[in-house]
Design a protein around this nucleic acid. Structure first.
Lengths: 328, 328
DNA sequence: TTGAAAGCGCTAACAA
DNA sequence: TTGTTAGCGCTTTCAA
């Protein structure tokens, strides 16, 4: 149904090769035939078949992206930045989602590879060496963003642990006597890659270990909100929550507000990520800006360098910084 | 570099057709050769080339999706639902973004068509008959979601106008003497398709026309927040804002809070969309639930019916309902 | 300046 | 049960 170079060739009484030369504007060709061909091509609404081109060229000018959740604004910002940067560099982006399903994630990655994506950007829930091996076996350039899989795969992110340390130190310096690390299970079918959260916890623990007078606790259950309530009500100390993700902080603030507890009057709280939505929340949540846009842009650039055959390092870190809000 | 049916055929000493029969498990083939072929295929890590398959089959089992913004949670929820439903039906989804750039939008749609997406789901910023004509000319099934383009293209959404009417009526019934419709320019390179907002405005106007004692005003400038402040401070009346989108409502609430004005004490306010993020905002915003998930699922089903050759109607409306929050 | 031919990897109709 | 052949629409090399 759709028009091909063959059709044009027949109509213009020339060979397909000639048609191609006109269309792609390469090779020697007389102005006259070229004009004629281009005119009919336009009239007929010719469009090149990108599947065919991809098949023969071996590349598609497409970057595949796999993330698990787009309702989380962190990923929304990431996708938006990736798309913009990729388009700037002449690539299209194919985004796919899997809602934290590990098996589906692998299927999606495979399918993108089978479709000859020129490169992949992944923020995976799978982890471990087997998965890393699977990725390397795909034989196509890729970049991991956020959830590190292995030291042998190019990764872009921030120094999560350092950032967490700085945050906890700040909390302590502000005068809090007790710091609670909050990171509930992340939902989804299986637990998933929680590299970032592990790193943040490690940073937290480091600082706590170095400050023996500070009490601490780790909330990692689904009912972290109930526990948070108890802590604020019962603990006689000045308490602050350090949440591994802004959303958890917002949940706590919302629920504590219901029982009349306000931050920073009754407790301190800090998030992580600085998602755009925080702008609509009062009081302004203190958090850590994680440069998701920069990270995304770097990932695209790094991927393209690989696609051009360059060899690249395995770790790229963007800057982060603490956002002084009103909740400490 | 990657392994093809040809390679397997050579190794197994059979024809490519036989290999295919084994792989696709169709046609008569001896158990023994089949086993042999499948074994080597597995050993070599054979994967079918989807570009080649798509080229010859004329279909790719892919649905292309084009939206302009994923940071807006309305679209995030939409994409998530589309992806889930499509996967359930055996299709993959290719999501692309363009940040409200009309030209880019057309390019993206074209490219997806050139890549033989089996169908498209669009929520376009372009509008008008020329655009509708362009879409129909693509010759591939498609569904418009949210921003209606033309009565001649299948559309899924809600009855925006009716919903707006109901909302404004509710506001009036609650006792407000002045109702302000809020819909600032939507940003982006050009104005874009604002079908939904136009419809909502129409509903607003209808109700206002029928209630002559109610004062009204329309805020449609970038500085709607400043104007909103003035109105609440100066107007002696009981005033409510009806915002064509939750985000505008949140902006107003945030800024008015800064000058000590609170809802519902000092003014009433209502949003539109019921984005998930509202759960983190207090007081709970009154708004309209627009069934974005149902709309998305219907869009996918409708698209697939078209891809299977069925003819479909042009308008599908899902239910909406008013969410009674604490801001009226 | 133009054309012929081979091939990308797969499917599908027809033969043997 | 297996193989042969043609073809999807394009690119690319070589020849005219």
């Amino acid at each position: 149904m759709s028009i091909t170079t063959n059709d044009i060739a027949k109509i213009c009484q020339v060979s397909r090769t000639t048609v191609l030369r006109a269309l792609n504007n390469q090779g020697r060709i007389s102005e006259e035939t070229k004009e004629r061909i281009l005119k009919t091509a336009k009239e007929l609404g010719y469009r090149p078949d990108l599947l065919a081109r991809g098949l023969v060229k071996g590349r598609t000018m497409y970057i595949g992206v796999v993330v698990f959740d787009v309702k989380n604004q962190y990923f929304a910002q990431m996708l938006s930045a990736i798309e913009t940067e990729a388009q700037k560099q002449g690539y299209s982006v194919n985004i796919t989602l899997h809602d934290k399903n590990k098996t589906k994630e692998i299927e999606l990655i495979r399918k993108l590879a089978d479709y000859h994506m020129d490169g992949l950007i992944l923020s995976p829930v799978n982890e471990g060496e087997e998965f890393a091996h699977f990725l390397k076996n795909l034989g196509i350039p890729l970049v991991i963003i956020g959830n590190k899989v292995s030291d042998t795969l190019p990764f872009v992110g921030i120094q999560e642990k350092e950032a967490a340390k700085e945050a906890v130190e700040k909390i302590i310096k502000t005068g809090y006597e007790e710091v609670i690390f909050v990171c509930p299970p992340l939902g989804g079918i299986d637990e998933g890659n929680i590299f970032t959260h592990r790193e943040r916890l490690a940073g937290f623990c480091d600082v706590i270990a170095a400050n023996t007078k500070i009490s601490s606790q780790i909330l990692s259950n689904y009912d972290y909100i109930e526990e948070a309530k108890k802590i604020v009500k019962d603990s006689g100390k000045k308490t602050a929550f350090f949440c591994s993700g802004d959303i958890f902080a917002l949940e706590i603030m919302k629920e504590l507000k219901k029982i009349g507890m306000k931050t920073p009057r009754d407790y301190g709280i800090m998030g992580f990520d600085d998602i755009e939505f925080l702008n609509y929340i009062t009081p302004r949540l203190s958090t850590i800006y994680n440069s998701v846009e920069e990270v995304s842009r770097t990932a695209v650039k790094l991927l393209i360098r690989q696609m051009q055959g360059e060899s690249v390092s395995m770790n790229y870190f963007e800057n982060y910084h603490i956002i002084d809000g009103e909740t400490l």
